[in-house]
């Protein structure tokens, strides 16, 4: 069973995460936690110091965290983005596409299910920051988009 699933080579930072509100006053904090109602863009001026952003999913159906992760990646953030909370194997593929590269779910996931979920889709219709070539680019012979 997977407790922390990580797709990064660097050592995990386990320094405690501070809230977005308090982050502005503690710019030495290495980790910050985004709740669904927080504005990820408030972090953008400080991203250089941040090693880990946790994005919390109190309930899996609240999809604001997907936008938060993409906004951070679109701004060039290269640190860890970790999904925590009510995260299940069926959400992994979309979360990876939005820029999450670590997962710490409330309920551990089955390794075999994780493997299947992440290897299932060969292609994608949309361009995100995950580096996958969208189908429209494959169709027009441009694999570098």
């Amino acid at each position: 069973m997977v407790e922390l699933l990580r797709f990064r080579d660097d050592e995990p930072s386990e320094s405690p995460a501070v809230t977005v509100d308090s982050f502005g006053d503690q710019s030495n904090a290495g980790a910050v936690r985004i709740e669904p109602g927080d504005d990820a863009r408030e972090l953008l001026p400080h991203l250089a110091h941040v090693r880990r952003v946790e994005i919390n999913f109190p309930v899996f159906g609240d999809g604001r965290g997907y936008s938060a992760a993409r906004i951070l990646r679109e701004a060039g953030f290269e640190g860890e983005i970790r999904a925590v909370g009510d995260v299940a194997v069926d959400q992994l593929a979309y979360m990876r596409r939005c820029g999450f590269d670590a997962f710490q779910p409330d309920k551990a996931m089955n390794d075999a299910d994780v493997e299947v979920a992440l290897s299932r889709w060969d292609d994608v219709y949309q361009k995100t920051t995950d580096g996958l070539t969208p189908i429209w680019a494959l169709r027009h012979g441009n694999a570098d988009v």
């Binding site: 899996f60 999809g63 997907y66 936008s67 593929a93 979309y94 596409r97 939005c98 994608v124 219709y125």
Partner: peptide, 8 residues
């Protein structure tokens, strides 16, 4: 279809 950001 299968939009990763807009499925929830």
């Amino acid at each position: 279809s299968f939009h990763p950001e807009f499925s929830y």
